[in-house]
Amino acid sequence: MTQLLQPIAENLWTNEAEPALLGGRLPNGKIVFPYPSGDAAEGVEPYRLSRKGTLWSWTRQDFQPKEPFEGPEPFQPYLLGYVELPGEVIVETRIVDCVLEDLKLGMPMEFVVAPFDATRATYAFRPEKA
C-alpha cells in the first residue's frame, strides 16, 4: 500500500526494495541526517543509513500541533523519538506499530516507510520483529 503513496519529501530515504534513510558523511567522517541542502552540502557524501538501531528516547504527541503540521484530520496522537544507528548517528523519527507502554530505552528498532496521510508516506521506526 505504501508503494502508492508519495514520499513527503524527495531524497529522504533511498528508492530501493529495502529502503533506508539517506544521510550524509561530512569531510571529517561525521554522519549527519538529513542530507544537507544548499551550500551546506558541499563536500558531503550521500550515505545510506543503517535500517536497524536502538531506541534512544521517545514521547507521544498528545495534542494537535499548529501549522506547519499537516497530519490527517481528525487528529490522532502519535509516537516519536530518537533511534541510535550504531556507529552512525541518532535520528529523530516517527515510531509506529506499537503503543507507548511497549517502549523501553535501548530496545531494537527497525526502519519502515509508513503512511502519513491519504496520499503521502513518511519514514518511521518500529520495534524490531523478533
Binding site: P68, F69, R94
Partner: peptide, 23 residues
C-alpha cells in the same frame, strides 16, 4: 530545517523537552 520536519509534526519545543527528560 527542511519543510517535512514541520509537516510531519516533529518540530515542537514541547517534544524536545519530553524527549530529553524521558531519557
Amino acid at each position: 530545517l527542511p519543510e517535512w520536519y514541520g509537516q510531519t509534526g516533529m518540530m515542537l519545543t514541547t517534544q524536545f523537552f519530553a524527549l530529553k527528560i524521558q531519557r
